[in-house]
């Protein structure tokens, strides 16, 4: 094991030990404000076995995952082609960019009231908000990816008489892919943030719903459990995306 990971493990260990001592031994931290390890364990057991806030943990997780997947996939299936088009054609860029500039600076969470007004408190409003959160970084980075392809590559392909479809599929998309994936990673992160916020406002199930109910019940242990699960899901979906990226870009061995 490397020096780095040893120090890392030691740090996390010391932090956990400090947490245990401050909450359960000395009582310096008020457990009504921040839970002790014991509280978190009990809350985790409760939500997994008995359920909390209308359902057991796996129901909440599946619900949140589904919303993120829908919003994210919807956003990238529109955002990537739009970004490609805008990067490829200066005319399309000139036409679309001003409208996009109107939408872009609006923070995704600011769509929540309008989404609820239009679509109600159901899932479609949340998908809409996640869509906006994921759409903007996807378009920006796809656009930049095409814009930043060095001209000689495209000129060479054209000089060799590459058919248009092949030019797009074999030159344009592969060359823009690293940037596209950067956009997708940002979009995924934004999707999770937005999901939690949208579910905090009102939801039947989901991790945000657990957070919301736990806040009203003044139940810090459950809040921490939900936060940990948000982090686990965010981390694992990001890992999944990185695995796809490594498969899609075998010629790029990027270690981040």
């Amino acid at each position: 094991m490397s020096r780095r990971s040893l120090i890392g493990l030691a740090t996390i260990g010391v932090l956990l030990a400090t947490w245990y001592v401050l909450t359960m031994v000395t009582g310096t931290i008020d457990t009504g404000r921040f839970p002790s390890p014991d509280d978190v364990w009990l809350a985790a057991k409760q939500v997994v076995i008995k359920g909390y806030a209308n359902g057991r943990l796996h129901i909440h997780i599946l619900h949140s995952l589904r919303l993120v997947a829908m919003g994210f996939l919807f956003a990238i299936s529109l955002g990537v082609p739009l970004g490609l088009l805008m990067g490829w054609s200066s005319r399309a860029e000139a036409l679309i960019n001003p409208i996009f500039l109107l939408v872009r600076p609006v923070p995704p969470l600011a769509w929540i009231p309008l989404a609820i007004l239009w679509l109600g408190l159901g899932d479609s409003a949340k998908v809409m908000v996640i869509f906006f959160a994921a759409f903007v970084p996807t378009v920006i980075n796809t656009h930049a990816g095409v814009r930043n392809i060095s001209s000689p590559i495209i000129e060479a392909a054209r000089m060799l008489g590459t058919p248009r479809a092949a030019l797009v599929l074999e030159v344009l998309v592969p060359a823009a892919l690293p940037s596209i994936f950067t956009g997708l990673r940002l979009a995924l992160q934004a999707s999770w943030t937005t999901l939690v916020a949208a579910e905090l406002v009102g939801a039947i199930a989901g991790l945000g719903r657990i957070l919301n109910v736990a806040q009203q019940d003044l139940y810090p242990g459950m809040i921490l459990v939900a936060m940990i699960w948000v982090a686990i899901l965010g981390w694992s979906t990001t890992r999944l995306l990185e695995a796809i990226e490594e498969r899609a870009l075998p010629w790029l061995v990027v270690r981040r």
């Binding site: 020096r3 780095r4 120090i7 890392g8 493990l9 740090t11 996390i12 932090l15 009504g32 404000r33 921040f34 969470l109 992160q189 999770w192 943030t193 999901l195 939690v196 916020a197 905090l200 957070l211 919301n212 736990a214 806040q215 003044l218 810090p220 809040i223 939900a226 936060m227 940990i228 948000v230 982090a231 686990i232 965010g234 981390w235 990001t238």
Partner: peptide
């Protein structure tokens, strides 16, 4: 760097919004 980075890696994936309930119960 060695000490702080693992903490950040652990905290990074918690969406900032998920801190709100803690903030609200009067931290």
């Amino acid at each position: 760097d060695d000490v702080v980075t693992p903490i950040f890696d652990a905290l990074r994936f918690i969406a900032p919004i998920a801190w709100v309930p803690f903030a609200m119960i009067g931290w």
